[in-house]
Design a protein around this nucleic acid. Structure first.
Lengths: 208, 208
DNA sequence: GTCTATATTGAGATAGAC
DNA sequence: GTCTATCTCAATATAGAC
């Protein structure tokens, strides 16, 4: 049981090891892909037996949920998406998307789990709800700011626009997995263009 | 083996029965949901044993692929999405989306399979590629026509816009499955609004 | 064409030794 | 904390009777 780790906090050796496992898992899945991989496969890839790996996680589903949680953590840190309003949210987010195209296995895992977690009984259910809410809140607030300055159209409210952006990103991942030649980032970029209100305004194509 | 049905064409009794099975399956899944249902469960629901059902389909995956194919067929027929350019594509498509909200099981099945079929070895791989291409071609052509009349912005090319619409529809399904209060159709409608170039044009909110 | 029964496989989880 | 070994379960696929 993983109770020790959950309860004991920072001193528990388990926490560090658990984290190390997640990082290894992230690399392995990114590199070798995820095709409904079994715990055993992943265990071997990170250098443990199946039982050894499951020592740190209560179940397969919890394990994979934690991998995704870790991924978000890494992405957020890497792209400086920390403050409430990063210097260039748009560019930073496009960078995340471009990065995704380098780690197909993680995209597969994410897509698979986001469908499975649709079931309220799934351990990742809450995670995906909270993740979605967080993502869209973040975007909605950035969008609202730009609406106030006229940089983004206000014909549609910010919450709905945020929902659209979220949907496009998820939807494009599926299109890309199916046909890897598809350019996810370019399409999302086109969507951002679409959000700008008028043609020939401050919408030059110089920087962003 | 289902060879008889595949080879013999219209006379084979199997074809009619197969079709009947698919229709029943559609109803059952729509009504009772799909949670990674087993062949056995579905078989019982349509009034056959597992082996009896598998008599008509080569495998589970083929069975579920055919169910989805049948669903498209039904949707297209019901919404008159037949001609190259239906009277009101936008309204018809929104009707399909609204209809989806009535059949959660089919949306789940679709979402699940579209992720699994990402694998080139999956029997539904080709189906999903062709379906996507078809859908987007259809949309791109309608969009291009409207771009020519100025009803839709031409800042982004029609193919990319079609891709965005496709992505939003798929993405919204996931958001809706996770949080059933989400209004898929309303969000897609907002996207359509976004495609219109200027504010205060023929964009009244009278009917839908 | 449909059923019952069974083969086969593969997974996740758990017990218990070290 | 990690391993080996095993339990248990579920699911598809198939053989063969009727």
């Amino acid at each position: 049981m993983a109770e020790q780790q959950r309860l004991r906090g920072p001193y528990a050796k388990g926490v560090a090891k658990r984290d190390e496992i997640l990082e290894r898992a992230l690399e392995v899945i990114a590199r070798e892909g995820y095709r409904g991989a079994s715990v055993k496969e992943l265990a071997e890839a990170v250098g443990l037996s199946q039982a050894g790996l499951l020592h740190y996680f209560d179940s397969k589903e919890e394990l994979f949920t934690e991998i995704l949680r870790k991924r978000d953590e890494v992405d957020i840190a890497e792209q400086d998406l920390v403050g409430d309003e990063p210097a260039d949210l748009r560019a930073a987010y496009l960078a995340v998307i471009r990065h995704n195209a380098e780690v197909p296995g993680l995209v597969q895992l994410f897509a698979r789990l986001s469908v499975d977690a649709t079931d309220p009984a799934h351990p990742a259910h809450r995670f995906f709800i909270e993740r979605g809410v967080g993502l869209r809140t973040f975007f909605a607030s950035a969008i609202a700011d730009r609406q106030a300055t006229g940089a983004i159209t206000d014909r549609i409210d910010a919450d709905t626009l945020a929902r659209i952006v979220h949907a496009v990103v998820d939807g494009m991942q599926v299109q890309w997995m199916l046909e890897p030649d598809v350019d996810m980032a370019a399409t999302v970029e086109a969507l951002f263009e679409l959000l700008s209100p008028a043609p020939g305004e401050g919408v030059s194509r110089t920087s962003n």
